[in-house]
Amino acid sequence: MGPTYWWMLFGMALVTYIPRMVPLTFLDGKELPPIVSGVLSNIPYAVLGALIFPAIIFVQEGNILFGIIGVATAFLIAILGGGVMPVVLGTIGVLAIYSFFM
């Protein structure tokens, strides 16, 4: 790839690190208004919803069934009380069986 690649990598590293670092270091110890901190405490759950849908449905291009089976399996294992690991490995397992026979 050559030196251009390494410059690009440097740029990518920088623009990835800034959004991670700036709020944690520069907001430290600052009291935010209650409505702002209320919104911020909502972020973890909202972002999970936005990260999962709709991307999970289209994870295998042109095969929506794959995504739907994945969603159903993961939710089922999670609702039954499986932790993160059983959910991940169980869903991969079910989809591996599905992909093997398709």
Partner: peptide
């Protein structure tokens, strides 16, 4: 192919208990 679901399964595993 099956492993492509891992990332999303993980998000679901984190979300559902909450």
């Amino acid at each position: 192919v099956a492993m492509s679901i891992a990332l999303y399964a993980m998000f679901i595993g984190l979300l559902v208990p909450a």
